[in-house]
Amino acid sequence: MGRYIIRRLLQSIPVLLGATLLIFTIVFALPGDPIAALAGEKQSNPNLVAILRERYHLNDPLLLQYWHYISGVLFRGDLGINFSEVPVSQLLAGKFQVTLNLALTALIIEALVGVGLGLWAALRRGKATDTMILASTLLLISVPTLVSGFILQYILGVKLKQWTGADIFPIAGIANGLRSYLLPGFVLAGVSIAYLTRLTRTSLAETLRADFIRTATAKGLSRRRVVGRHALRNALIPLITFLGADLGNLMGGAVITERIFNLPGIGLQLFDSVYLREQPVVVGIVTILVLIYIVANLAVDLMYAVLDPRIRYE
């Protein structure tokens, strides 16, 4: 097992390099001059510009720039500094926490609602409940986050507050602790909830058709035990995989949600940094996201081995 983990981590190095190089190239190819952008509309001092360009290696060829960057990341754990001389790692630390909170809130909501609805639908297959749940997942999938986000913000954030007088779902910022994340978390989870509901429904329905379920029934077990113990353990396996892989998606998807709810996370930062062409920040964020993907996927594979005894890693 230990050797498997090490091998997986080694395998992920090329993935990390590839992804960062790609994003580095894209940022590099963006039109406009970052130093000019720094000065805004004003005419900047050509000498200063030259110094800054030298300092941030902006005159070097792309690959060399990339080397400056990635060697810092790999050998010093240093994500570089932005154009205001703030270390990127320091800049991102607090924001990263915000995004992680958001993504984890979304993941928990997704797991509870998605699995719950999916199980409910599977146990009521073909009945009205099932049809209604399926229809609402379709709706969730087809409405973009941008739209559902604003609608929920308006109804649950603005209107509900007007009706009840209580600020149950804050509409912006993180001033209210965990409560601030509920509404954004739900919006972020929206599409994933729909997919997870469908996956859960299919997975349980399929498991209920398995031979070992017939055996469990023939053992004289109650329906409750047959479904809750024998079927559920098997049906959960693909869901765990989906949830693990989705953590990365949620972190990435946070860009839009953080804009809607004005949460100071890495998504919002990414937006600003792309605008300002702060290469180190953009690449730093992407690097972190890629790392999270890799770790989440590894964790999923390990979970898989725990849940399904037929799987063994060497």
């Binding site: 070992f212 017939r214 024998h230 849940l307 399904d308 005894p309």
Partner: peptide, 10 residues
């Protein structure tokens, strides 16, 4: 078929 008739995860 005892393989499919037994629950694989227990």
């Amino acid at each position: 078929d005892a393989l499919s008739a037994l629950n694989p995860v227990f």
